[in-house]
């Protein structure tokens, strides 16, 4: 039983790492614009699908294909912000959220027409031989996922706390108006936030594709799970969402193993609802009081 639990935990942590990465993408855009970008899942899909396209159709080596996929997805994120978000800067957050949903359907539709409806696999970064760990097993790809996720989170933290652009973005998230009064280009920060989160989304899509495979419609579910992670973490673009994602992954996996696998997705969404009812500010954040 002990190594069964360990296996559930390990499976949960590796899935959870992905949820975290996607969740942080949600949080970054939310913090700089106040909107939830429901096209985030499509960036994840584009990362995986574009890597496959470069690998299979153009015969690129894996690192080059991955690099190009990240660059292209980031470009899509930037164009999306330019064409769909910026022209409507004075719209209410609600209509912007609806626009992101429309954008996600559009991106998914184009991907379906361009790349077809098939599921595709991309090769693992290193060997496919499982590693044994106290009776449980993991694949080298899981270690890649954990490692790359940690790196990205570290870089992210460095960017937000130790660079001028990162600090400016945090300023925008606290108070947009005040930030623009001290000379921060809020519009530019919004653009950067879209660029960062689409790049992060695509990396999440690429590192999971060797394990989970990819197709034009993987973005929907992954996007929702990432959104759950961000909600649990109180929409923080740091440690809160990372824990949110890991917690979600582990609970899903334990729930599937110990209770019933039929309820796996239900568990995620019950947690989401509970958090929204009981602690809408997230598990790790103090309640904010609005001062007038």
């Amino acid at each position: 039983m002990a190594h069964q639990i360990l296996q559930y935990m390990l499976s949960g942590l590796s899935t959870g790492a992905i949820y975290s990465l996607i969740g942080i993408g949600f949080a970054i855009i939310y913090n700089s614009t106040g909107i939830i970008n429901f096209a985030q899942g499509e960036f994840v899909m584009l990362g995986g699908m574009l890597t496959y396209v470069f690998l299979a159709l153009f015969d690129f080596p894996l690192p080059a294909a991955m690099g190009l996929a990240v660059v292209l997805t980031t470009a899509v994120g930037v164009v999306f912000e330019r064409l769909a978000i910026r022209p409507l800067r004075n719209a209410t957050p609600l209509s912007l959220v609806i626009i992101t949903i429309g954008g996600s359907i559009l991106i998914r539709g184009i991907a379906m027409l361009q790349f077809g409806k098939d599921t595709h696999a991309i090769p693992a970064f290193s060997s496919n031989e499982p590693l044994t760990l106290a009776g449980a097993t993991v694949l080298p790809q899981h270690l890649w996922i954990l490692g790359i996720t940690l790196c990205i989170i570290a870089v992210n933290r460095f960017f937000f706390f130790h660079t001028i652009n990162g600090k400016a973005m945090r300023a925008c998230s606290h108070n947009r108006r005040a930030a623009s009064l001290v000379g921060i280009g809020v519009k530019r920060m919004v653009l950067i936030s879209f660029a960062i989160s689409s790049a992060m989304g695509s990396v999440a899509g690429i590192i999971t594709a060797p394990l989970t495979m990819t197709s034009y419609d993987v973005g929907i579910m992954l996007g929702l799970k990432g959104f759950c992670a961000a909600i649990i973490g109180g929409m923080s673009s740091g440690i809160g969402t990372v824990f949110g994602g890991l917690l979600l992954g582990v609970l899903e996996s334990l729930g599937a193993g110990l209770i019933s696998s039929g309820y796996k997705d239900a568990i995620a969404f019950i947690i989401l609802l509970l958090i929204l009812f009981i602690r809408p500010q997230g598990l790790f954040r103090k309640a904010e009081t609005e001062r007038v």
Binding site: Q4, Q7, Y8, S11, M213, A256, G257, S261, D265
Partner: peptide, 20 residues
Amino acid sequence: DEVYSPKDTDMTPQLTKIRG
């Protein structure tokens, strides 16, 4: 007697249980 959803990407929890 385990199930998974059509879009699931990791069935190791179910399989761990089955192995048990």
